[in-house]
Design a protein around this nucleic acid. Structure first.
Lengths: 309, 309
DNA sequence: GACAATGCTTGCTTATGTCAAATAATTGAC
DNA sequence: GTCAATTATTTGACATAAGCAAGCATTGTC
């Protein structure tokens, strides 16, 4: 290295820091129209991206003072955004997780942020976008010792547009992977239509898994009878498999069914869906019935699985 | 563009924002050991890099609330870091400039920041440093509509190490540009030695011009008699010429001499130094005497210039 | 079972930041 | 030249952000 370059480099980094401090200040303004401060947004972001976490863990990741964080979390709890459950292994800590309302609020915040950044990016040419993203990767790679979270997906309630995605993705994937015909897509469409039209918000729910701003999975919990809930339409996009999203979706569904007072959770699937089967088994579902049927252009074996709640 | 890339890009930018928010938080900690908060540091930085500015201008550049800024500036004034002079063209505004103490405090802050960033950079390989700086430039270029200040230098009092630089640079540059021999360097060394040894801090001063962390210019104001000050050793590095640094140094020197009560400012130079001559003329100096002499291996014409204060 | 360490909460303090009103000076319209 | 609108700055009141330290309950260690 030419030794005379070094001060120039230091100056360049300092200039960039000033520049980006400014940029982040601008983002801050974007949050003004949201019910979250920058710090709160960072906290809720972290919670949303962990299935479960604790205050100390959050504090370490974000570099926050424990007292300050405690207050932020207290506020979230009061607003009904998070649940604190005393840990079974260590009764000093609370396990933090988003409530349904929290998931919803966060999804909105997330969408707003995405829209804002998207708007900014759209002002750039394709080449500029590529260069920008590449340069950011470079900087993160060089400065960021800490690896990105393994789990970068997030669960949220459904929003407009999601039902279409559910139908579309089921159609495409079951065709690709199992050769099922369009009758399957139609069946899915019928299910989601009914879900939307007669949705009992208190006892029925849909979760969408989102990764890097794109939908990558879903599951539905619908009412079959007063005491029995049914898990339907579990799907994980191939691009996002292996991250535990399927398991998490099922888990969330079970937690919900239990919480709102069902006594049994049932589901219908087909024996060719091996990955799903493994998840159901792990979560404690029991195979209660099988029957042969011819549907979607194939001979299939339908299965009913039950879980006592 | 592949439309499916877009959400990925948005996600990448958002991730970078989170990442850099974190980074800037770390820098914030570096300031904890300084007497400035992040906001204060940003304000004093801006003041230091403008010869003169106003509160409104600062507020616009930094995006600060006028009231908040007013208080920060009030605090600085109380601590003796800045001067507020009512503008002659608009008596509502104050022209802000750093006092000597302010220049000094800021130079220390600046050095600390540079040291911190320098330390971080030293942990990287030469190639990584280059890539980092290049990536930062790219981002600034793409996102930053606003051009960097034209004037990126800063004046400050001397610090340990500066005298050596003054001697060295005079030696090298006068050899390169005029072929003067080592006797000139020796003369400079003698002058700075005397300056340090018998410096009357109230009535004598040295200014160093700094650009991107490197010294690029200097000037001295020393006492010749109770009523007469002498400007000496004006130098601007070739790399930094054309930015008005020479003029600014002379200007600062005149202001100081006037403020501490001298009645005349005098200086000795040689007719071959054309650039310097132009500055002296512009600032109102008058040529009072010339004499031929043989020094530093050349036949020269020495000149005395005076300015009534 | 004493004792240090950990996870979290709470009280207190200071810094940060915003809003609205007040003052003084300037500018533009007539 | 006069008046209204605008601009630069200050000030008071206020809300939020953020850090420090003391405290409490729990856990792990010896």
């Amino acid at each position: 290295m030419q030794e005379t370059d070094f001060p120039k480099r230091v100056a360049a980094v300092r200039r960039f820091n000033r520049f980006y401090t400014q940029q982040i200040g601008l983002l801050h303004e974007g949050l003004l129209r949201s019910p979250f401060s920058l710090s709160q947004a960072r906290v809720i972001y972290e919670i949303a991206h962990h299935e479960q976490t604790t205050a100390t863990e959050l504090g370490k990741e974000l570099g926050f003072d424990a007292g300050y964080l405690s207050r932020i979390l207290g506020g979230f709890e009061k607003r009904g955004l998070i649940d604190k459950t005393v840990s079974t292994t260590d009764r000093r800590q609370s396990i933090l997780s988003l409530t349904d309302a929290g998931q919803d609020k966060f999804a909105k915040l997330n969408a707003a942020s995405r829209k804002e950044i998207g708007g900014m990016l759209r002002g750039l040419s394709d080449v500029e976008q590529q260069r920008l993203v590449h340069a950011m990767h470079t900087i993160e790679g060089i400065l960021g010792a800490q690896p990105e979270h393994k789990v970068t997906y997030l669960l949220r309630p459904h929003q407009p547009g999601d039902m279409g995605w559910v139908v579309h993705r089921h159609g495409v994937l079951y065709d690709q992977e199992y050769g099922w015909d369009e009758h399957f897509e139609a069946l899915v469409a019928e299910i989601v239509a009914k879900f939307i039209q007669s949705c009992d918000a208190k006892r029925e729910r849909c979760w969408i898994a989102e990764k890097e701003g794109e939908n990558v999975g879903c599951v539905f919990c619908v009412k079959q009878s007063k005491r029995v809930a049914k898990l339907r339409l579990l799907l994980v996009d191939p691009r996002a498999r292996g991250l535990g999203i399927g398991k998490r979706l099922v888990h969330e569904c079970i937690r919900f069914a239990r919480r709102v007072g069902y006594q049994k959770l049932t589901l219908w699937t087909n024996d060719v869906l091996h990955a799903a089967r493994r998840i159901y088994e792990q979560e404690g579902f029991v195979l209660v019935q099988e029957e042969h049927h011819h549907s979607f252009g194939h001979d299939l074996v339908g299965q009913n699985w039950d879980l006592a709640l």
